Amino acid sequence: MTLRSVEPSKKKLWYAAIKPPMYSVAVMPIWVGSAVAFAETRSLNLLVFFTFLISAILILAWENLSNDVFDSETGVDVNKANSVVNLTGNKSLIFWISNAFLVAGLSGILAIALMQGDFTVIGLVLACCAIGYIYQGPPFRLSYQGLGEPLCFLAFGPLAFSAAYYSQTKAWSGTNLAASIGVGIATSLILFCSHFNQVEDDAAIGKKSPVVRLGAKRSAQLLPWICGSFYALTILFVILKLFPVWTLLSLLSFPVAKRLCHTIGSQYHQPHKLLRCRLIAVELHFWFGLLFGLGFLFLYAI
Score class of each variant (00 low, 15 high):
residue 162 S to P: 03
residue 145 Q to P: 01
residue 236 L to P: 05
residue 182 G to T: 14
residue 198 Q to D: 11
residue 165 Y to K: 04
residue 199 V to Y: 15
residue 168 Q to A: 07
residue 171 A to R: 06
residue 216 A to W: 15
residue 175 T to E: 13
residue 180 S to D: 04
residue 240 L to M: 13
residue 160 A to H: 09
residue 235 I to Q: 01
residue 191 L to H: 07
residue 221 Q to S: 09
residue 200 E to Q: 15
residue 231 Y to Q: 04
residue 161 F to Q: 01
residue 169 T to K: 01
residue 164 A to S: 15
residue 177 L to V: 11
residue 144 Y to P: 00
residue 149 E to T: 07
residue 168 Q to I: 09
residue 170 K to F: 11
residue 196 F to Q: 00
residue 139 P to T: 08
residue 174 G to Q: 10
residue 140 F to T: 00
residue 186 A to C: 14
residue 176 N to G: 13
residue 173 S to H: 02
residue 240 L to G: 07
residue 150 P to H: 13
residue 145 Q to L: 12
residue 157 G to M: 01
residue 195 H to K: 09
residue 207 K to H: 12
residue 150 P to I: 12
residue 141 R to W: 02
residue 171 A to P: 04
residue 168 Q to G: 07
residue 172 W to Q: 01
residue 168 Q to L: 07
residue 177 L to Y: 11
residue 154 L to V: 14
residue 240 L to V: 07
residue 193 C to P: 02
residue 149 E to N: 11
residue 154 L to Y: 05
residue 202 D to N: 12
residue 236 L to E: 07
residue 214 L to T: 07
residue 204 A to I: 08
residue 238 V to K: 06
residue 161 F to V: 03
residue 160 A to M: 14
residue 176 N to P: 08
residue 177 L to D: 01
residue 191 L to S: 10
residue 201 D to R: 11
residue 238 V to Q: 10
residue 220 A to D: 04
residue 143 S to R: 05
residue 180 S to L: 03
residue 229 S to L: 14
residue 182 G to M: 14
residue 163 A to Q: 09
residue 210 P to R: 05
residue 238 V to R: 12
residue 142 L to S: 01
residue 213 R to E: 06
residue 201 D to P: 04
residue 144 Y to C: 00
residue 182 G to Q: 11
residue 212 V to D: 02
residue 242 L to D: 04
residue 216 A to S: 15
residue 168 Q to D: 09
residue 197 N to Q: 12
residue 195 H to S: 05
residue 224 P to A: 06
residue 232 A to H: 10
